[in-house]
């Protein structure tokens, strides 16, 4: 199944069908989620209306972690099996993950100010999520920073895999050390400590974000594949049209033609 999808031509065919479904489904689910989060959900017994920030903060945090895991697994597949699509998937997903991490940090700050009394503290949870954000930025910079895209992909993949150690630290930081951030309410052993009327909007928003991720990932992967095809076509035509000039000057015509 995976190896069948790993063929770029087949991927283009399947993703062309899946893309509009993911895109419209994410619009619909997020619209329902926003209604539930902003209007239907009750105010919290302690936090009042400020609790509504949770409905973007928590799903964004889940996405930040899961997309990093996705990037890391795709990087491992790219390193070991040298699947071209795996590398493209990792490279396309990272900016989406960085965006969700930024949303998580910024909305958390806006939530922390009225509830905790501070925009930011250097506790284990907040610091490890900031490290996650920098890992994303480092990966994006590495992957785009090399002239040879294959080399950049390989170096970036190694960074992505090294950064995996940060994921359990983020998840369990609130249990291992005492932090200002409270422990998990939904993904915990035992019953969730959140009322159903607040859990449902949270899960709907999370589903909407997941579909948005899927749609964005497909768009970005298709873009990446198109751009690789463009690069290959330009190289080909440059090589066949002007073999003379290349030999005259002793330099390949590649950089000038590429731009």
């Amino acid at each position: 199944m995976l190896t069948r999808l790993a063929n770029p031509a087949r991927f283009m065919r399947i993703s062309a069908v899946a893309l509009p479904w993911c895109a419209w489904a994410s619009c619909a689910v997020i619209a329902v989620g926003l209604y539930l989060a902003l209007i239907a959900a009750p105010p919290d017994y302690q936090q009042g209306e400020a609790v509504r920030i949770m409905y973007v903060h928590v799903p964004a945090a889940w996405m930040a972690l899961n997309i990093y895991l996705f990037v890391a697994v795709a990087s491992a597949v790219a390193l070991v099996w040298r699947h071209p699509l795996a590398e493209i998937a990792a490279r396309s997903a990272a900016p989406i993950g960085a965006a969700f991490t930024f949303v998580c940090l910024a909305s958390g700050s806006l939530w922390g100010r009225p509830m905790w009394g501070t925009w930011w503290v250097w506790d284990a949870r907040l610091t490890s999520v900031l490290v996650l954000f920098f890992l994303y930025l480092g990966y994006i910079a590495l992957v785009n920073g090399f002239d040879d895209p294959g080399r950049g992909g390989r170096v970036g993949s190694i960074l992505a895999l090294v950064g995996v150690v940060n994921l359990p630290i983020i998840k369990f930081s609130v249990d291992w050390w005492n932090t200002l951030h409270q422990p998990a309410s939904v993904l915990r052993f035992g019953k969730p400590t959140i009322a159903l009327s607040m859990l449902v909007p949270l899960l709907v928003m999370a589903l909407g974000f997941m579909l948005l991720f899927a749609a964005l990932l497909l768009v970005r992967m298709r873009t990446e594949l198109n751009e690789r095809k463009i690069r290959a076509l330009r190289l080909n035509s440059a090589a066949s049209v002007r073999p003379k000039r290349r030999s005259e000057h002793g330099v390949p015509a590649r950089p000038a033609v590429l731009r």
Binding site: A50, P95, A99
Partner: peptide, 22 residues
């Protein structure tokens, strides 16, 4: 928003801007 408007609305606006921009 029960007095929390300056925190709740910017949180949603910021999310919409970042994700919409992407």
């Amino acid at each position: 928003m029960g007095g929390y408007a300056v925190f709740v609305w910017p949180a949603y606006a910021l999310t919409a801007t970042v994700l919409g921009g992407l």
